[in-house]
Design a protein around this nucleic acid. Sequence first.
RNA 1: GCUGUUGUAGCUCAGGGGUAGAGCACUUCCUUGGUAAGGAAGAGGUCGUGAGUUCAAUUCUCAUCAACAGCUCCA
Length: 646
Amino acid sequence: MINITFPDGAVRQYEAGVTAMDIAKSISEGLARKVLAAKFNGQVTDASRPITTDGTLQLLTWTDTEGKSTMWHSSAHLMAEALEELYPGTKFGIGPAIENGFYYDIDLGGRAISDEDLEKIGAKMADLAKKNNVYERKEVSKADAIKYFTEKSDEYKLELINDLQDGTISFYTQGNFTDLCRGPHIPNTGFIKAIKLTNIAGAYWRGNEKNKMLTRIYGITFPTQKELDEYLTLVEEAKKRDHRKLGKELELFTFSEKVGLGLPLWLPKGALLRERLQSFLQKAQIESGYMPVVTPHIGNKNLYITSGHYEKYGKDSFQPITTPEEGEEFMLKPMNCPHHCEIYKSSPKSYKDLPVRFAEFGTVYRYEQHGELHGLTRVRGFTQDDAHLFCRPDQVKEEFCKVIDLVLYVFKSLNFTDYTAQISLRDKEDRAKYIGSEENWNLAEQAIIESAAEKGLRTVVEYGEAAFYGPKLDFMVKDALGRKWQLGTIQVDYNLPERFELEYVGADNQKHRPVMIHRAPFGSLERFIAVLIEHCGGKFPLWLTPTQVKILPISDKNQAYAEKVAELLKNAEIRAEIDDRNEKIGKKIRETELAKIPYMLVLGEKEAAEDKVAVRRQAKGDLGAMEISQFIELVKDEVTSRRPFE
RNA sequence: GCUGUUGUAGCUCAGGGGUAGAGCACUUCCUUGGUAAGGAAGAGGUCGUGAGUUCAAUUCUCAUCAACAGCUCCA
């Protein structure tokens, strides 16, 4: 007999060789019908594998992340089976589960596949799923594995097997399809009830662009049709919130082929929004002791040779601009830090002067690959809410804490409540690739870990993710639909102070090297606004929204009163517009609602006579009539408290 | 940069070897209407660009540019 411990701490005895599925059945039939896989002593395995030793067991169902990924992995096999039936001779690369579903990379031998084919493949999968075929595991020798795939002439699988140790190789078979696979898998195909193949894309074999491009088919499956429908609804919702679509609809920004790829043009409404965000942060920064600086859009190539960026990223920059007479080369600045280093150097610094904090909304230009450009999140010209703090090594932690405070203040003000902080530290083994002394690195890494803990951040630590010049802390924000984005970043840097020979005079009258901290709470205004648009679905908080109030006169007889109200709002610094078109009130309301403008004032004879305004709130409806002064108070209160839209 | 898909009016999209259509937006007129679309008329397009096939190309072919999806990259 063996002892099995359950997640709730309960211990039960079973005969050795029992399977997780047997155990599930011993608890309840209902549970057994839901078990997709098992986690034994922390390892995810097939529910059908015999358990021979004591250990802890967790039964995985659809509600567990590992349960989902097991099902999706099995779905990839099911898709492969369908593909093999429909297109004999298809060769298979890899077919893993991903965050939302699964994919399989396949080689169709030159045959093209279209979106209509996806329907066909999906239907075939559904047919096969109904057979309730069991996913059967078989350990095979390397020689047998090679033999099997040589007969199938699948060079991709052969390449994978080549990298595997004999004795660790397993095959899984369901129906007529056998695949090289570590597993685990769900008990049988019958668990897959709802299937949607989402899209086709090219993908390099093993992610290497020198290799052959395979066809990648993405899909997702669910245990019920209802869950699939819900997922599809969510995807639809995400499409509606796409910042590229909303940016166009709300007239925030545009792109022009003639101006150039990845170079956003900010329309008046977008520019206004951007400026508000900028002045909001500017104010907070000045209160936190930052000093604004301004630097030009270009810098001598030598600046970037000194900083090391030319060597490392020269090919990702725009080509240098050459002066006609002297032939000097200037580059569009890909970053602001070298300029700020030179500002630091413009006067001698004492240890008493530190820290100094230079802030600039600096527009930078980087040559991003064509295929990388994406709306406002990936562009070739963007404005960083950049600042560089120069401090003594003993000040790193305090400064770091202050920066975290600022970032959190920004997030809170914009209603980003769901974020995690990623701490990126050195590779544990390979330390040669990092610049700076062991002592300073330890100090900085410690400072980051401690400040994050002190501020109560939810953190993930990633070793080997640090930049070569220092450790960093990145803020990953989730938008309203749960998609993750990297926004704010705080980075410690030992490299640039070294390269620019930055110094300060210490209490000991000796020269010392300051530590530099790069930080950007938004990251870039472009990306931040993109995320903000998607986060709030285009319904910006009142303090940011371009037009706060739309004044809707019922007819042109009420025009004069509308203008009077507009004047009063303007004096109160409320952004209001009059819709004086010769249209019916219903139409004006409809259009204002669709434009997501928070407040509407419907003005007719009645309001003019009583000196009141009839207030309507977007998506909420009529709030009734009130005094103009009362409405102004209402708006001002919502603005100062930075309340979210709803 | 690579692979695939797409490119028709300001926007969303239909069409198709004989030089184009809808809805919304726009202009003018009528209408003065009380909380999500009042009516009529009008204007607007070298069908992304360049070449080829054809008596004839916006439609077919090729190239090119751009957008989208993914891959690779990201100070």
